[in-house]
Amino acid sequence: MAVLRDELIGLRSMDDMIKARQLVRDCAIFQGLSLVDQTKIVTAASELARNTLVHGGGGEMRLQALNDGPRRGVKVIFADRGPGIPNIELAMKDGYTTRGGLGLGLSGSKRLVNEFSIESQSGKGTTVSIVRWK
């Protein structure tokens, strides 16, 4: 698998989050994703960037354009050094929320992408990685 583009940006403020959305959109267009697929990965990235900001106390986003044979895709990785998620299974459930949101951030963004993985260690932080293929 070849990585065509590799960008790293910090997620410290709402402005960063908006910039992150635009970067993901650019990358999805670059990879030739359809409008619906673009919208899905940008929306998922928006959910996860907000999590990084609100729950993780800020962190960073890494964006990669992937080529795997004839398949082209976009991978986004969110990492923070926040408190971590004690119970991932519970956090992945629709409607589970700690801050009065809708509880769709994790479960919803998982439905918007082709690949989703999450790692979290209590006290050390959380890393979420998503891929949408063309």
């Binding site: 409008l35 619906v36 673009q38 919208t39 899905k40 929306t43 809708l102 769709l104 919803g108």
Partner: peptide
């Protein structure tokens, strides 16, 4: 609402 947004919202569960 744009079609792509409508499709994404439904998939998101909203």
């Amino acid at each position: 609402m744009r079609p792509a947004v409508a499709i994404t919202l439904v998939e998101l569960g909203l």
